[in-house]
Design a protein around this nucleic acid. Sequence first.
DNA 1: TAGCATCATTGAATCGATTCATTTCGATTC
DNA 2: GAATCGAAATGAATCGATTCAATGATGCTA
Lengths: 352, 352
Amino acid sequence: MGNRVRLVDVARAAGVSQGTASNAFGKPHLVRDELREKILAVAAEMGYRGPHVMARMLRTGKAGALGVVFPDNLEYAFSDPVAIELLRGVGRECARQSVNMMIISAENHEQAVAAVNNAAVDAFLVHCYSDNNDVIAAIRRRNLPMVGIDTDIAGATATVVLDDFEGAASAARHLLECGARKFAILSLQADEDGQFGLMDARRRGAVSHRVVRERLAGYHAVLKDAGIDVADIVHVECENLSEHVRGQVTDLMAQFPDIDGILAMSDVIAIGALEALAKTGHDVPGQVRVMGIDGVARGARTTPPLSTVAQNSVEKGRIAAELALAGDNVSEPVLLKTRLLVRASSRLPDIS
Amino acid sequence: MGNRVRLVDVARAAGVSQGTASNAFGKPHLVRDELREKILAVAAEMGYRGPHVMARMLRTGKAGALGVVFPDNLEYAFSDPVAIELLRGVGRECARQSVNMMIISAENHEQAVAAVNNAAVDAFLVHCYSDNNDVIAAIRRRNLPMVGIDTDIAGATATVVLDDFEGAASAARHLLECGARKFAILSLQADEDGQFGLMDARRRGAVSHRVVRERLAGYHAVLKDAGIDVADIVHVECENLSEHVRGQVTDLMAQFPDIDGILAMSDVIAIGALEALAKTGHDVPGQVRVMGIDGVARGARTTPPLSTVAQNSVEKGRIAAELALAGDNVSEPVLLKTRLLVRASSRLPDIS
DNA sequence: TAGCATCATTGAATCGATTCATTTCGATTC
DNA sequence: GAATCGAAATGAATCGATTCAATGATGCTA
């Protein structure tokens, strides 16, 4: 039954102190070779399974794991290509540092709080959560290093974000160069309230997600400079799922047939837009130009291939993990650069 | 510095026993409402952060986490669409049961053993590992529930596998019906030795991965029945990455130009084959018919769309997680069914 | 009013290691 | 031969909770 062999049993059987037995496993160099081998032999014979993980954790205070927290349900994280890239980067750094990766999973907010409280980890990575949220509060209460990714939650020991303003600006600049004049912006969700559809000025003024705020600002700055009135831009808040976007874009084009430039805040959204436009018989890029943000692999295979502003999500995840595991306070956010990736869904005017 | 507020401090300050203070947090119904609120108030005022996770674990013996172990490096797991689906299913069940998900990460075998030994989990999920392996041995030594997915490692408390034999058989049957007579089988890796290329009979006879063994057997059974000599089938062992497969298939078709049926053991491989065939000007399915196995989303968007034998990987992961967390010994492997999914990369003969 | 449940609380034992100040012992130096 | 040193081993304290048998208080019944 509950008769697990303990270190103290091994020590007794081998005729050494518990401290020495502990060292034989954890700090081999502190024990004479001969003696250590004897201890290990005795342990093996007794069926000792090695130091008890939880007991070691309690004593040392180290969990050997990095917690990764995604907003809302986890299913989304495992279906969004960008989130997966991010996880890949996190995984890479965790492997490098011999630390495991704990995915905090929950079906709802209440469960998420409990999951955070039960997670034996040394640091937290928080992706894309907005601030003032009970899950964030729970994480903060744990008093562990906490790194925000693509979010500027208060109390983070470090923050890794994309240069969203400049990324969005470059997308807008490019579509202007391609000749677009009547714009639609397909936004990611501005808040966690599950609201979709047309965004009025009030909604645009109270965006809780940093990513959305910055990208909007980037788009607007460039378009205003070009003499376009923000009030003339159609803003639609979309769920980050191609299938959902299809319907929204179909409606959008029916309502505003003169749109000739679509700025999507993610490639997933942009791909949904391309699909809708193909189905409704719009010519891309002849009639409408489309730009995404992210640079996901699938964008290279759409028809037409998707122009986008690429980011390196793997590296973003890796850096965030590195900062979290280092645990230092880094006051300045780490700002990652974007790269314009022109493919066929936008089109430069003929230079001939 | 190290002056964390402990439960005993709270108890003392609130004038109750440590046991009662513990109950106030963990078993609220055992403490009178009024008293409990007082304790919580005192705790809040003292800045108590809640029960110490590792101490609780040590005492209760429950980690509240499920370990997921992938073979080789983790990067692969996060780039294979099937593995991701699997993780999605695992995540779904973990969330349902309020358990976190620990991804055991490592760069090499030695690190993987250490990672397994340091993981505070209640059970392990092992994906696609072959047996007789030190990582598996380490997991076994932990003496926790261990569920094998797509693998039949000894000592597993439960096993979840695809009906690989029947899945492969149905793929072969379909290509025969479509008129193929000269077959190539594009195999997944038979072993962890990193060997690729043509598989001779000896190699085919010593396959350590169950998946490969079963699928080979399924293909062969059907093809033999149809009067095809196994010696006439070209076997190629491929890395499960479309880019690598492209080169292999290009060579293959140059060497064996009469191949008219390709049976790939995964969609990723099949997609690589389609790409190679397109580049070398082979007509699919007119000249060569191609079948995958898995049913990944991308297969619906290739040109031509990929015929395949679909499986439900999400559900596979979910069931495995459920079995692992239940912890019962299930002697019979859970066998999941496949479903033939005919698209344009194979072609049925005209019935006119 | 004794007897008996029921509910709330206590307090010491326990989970299984690691740590570190101290002791032991043999070798080296003066 | 005493003093000094370093390496190896000791053993008690510690990490911070949870558990459970025992105790106390309260209400109810006969």
